[in-house]
Amino acid sequence: MNKLDIAKSEPLWNTNKNITLIISVLLFILIALPFFGLNSFYLHLFIMIFMHAVMAQSWNVIAGLSGQISLGHGAFFGIGAYASSFFFVQYGISPWISIFIGMFFSAIVAVLIGIPMLRLSGHYFAIATLLIGISFQVVFQRWELVGAASGLWVPLTQEDSWNSLQFHSSKAPYYYIFLFFLVVTFFAVWLLNRSKIGFRLRAVRDDAQAASSLCISVSNYKIIAFVISAMIMAPMGSLFGQYILIIDPDRMFNIEISIIVLLITVLGGIGNIWGPLIGAAILIPISEYSRIYLGGTGGAVDLIFYGLILMVICIFRPEGLISFVPKNILERKKQR
């Protein structure tokens, strides 16, 4: 029986009991946390962890699952943020709908970028995405329609409003929204991992020639991975825009976004669905606390840590921190 048949024959929920237990406990704790009167700093910390875990998961899909290294993934974050805020600011469309508009736009951009870059692989692809990420920033800095360098300012509502996704009195609603997206995204990627598409993507990653000899269209699957990855990234941009309520090209297309998603994934464990969550849960607190105690981003202390951690991980643990977890906890039950 091949792996695909095994995966198919399993019922959806038949995972390792340990994992199910860990997830349920974790989820319960996370849902209950705001009721224990966390102050807004801790809520912010958790919101950032959730957001970055999803962003890193998006990068994990393209890099871990399909093996392409994108160094300009911040572009999709920015497109999501701009698309949703633009329709909200200009036409008053509720952010709940414009999040999907943002996803739609970044999917289109992913296809448009993906088609010419089909033939690129390895270093060429990495450099091309680096260039594209910067090009987007350059274009949006000068595009008058979306406010050029000063960006878009989301009109403030007087009171908290679910309709326009603004909460001024407490961060708890943001917390639940980001948590919701975290759960949905991880579930979707988990399904993707076990689906046919997931198996084919891994086949393309491991050996493109062998995959194409089995009638898997390498280029199509690369585009599919790119689009899925972009569609995971875009809502985070939209939500982050709603969270800080100002969308400017320097923040939304910052190269730091592309760096941090890469760093989180590599730290946690590339190609593993739990890698991004572990990476984010470790890295974001380091970053936020180093900002508090060692000065703001002007001093760039957190970036020093990022660079150092990235190099150390690459030298000593290329598989990421997830490799410290004993295998029998993570793996599904063996089937005969």
Partner: peptide, 22 residues
């Protein structure tokens, strides 16, 4: 793997740049 190589030199670039900024 190539991915690790790219990440390592990318990490070096972030490290040098932010040390210089500090």
């Amino acid at each position: 793997k190539m991915l690790i190589q790219i990440c390592a030199t990318f990490g070096l670039s972030i490290f040098i740049r932010s040390i210089a900024q500090l």
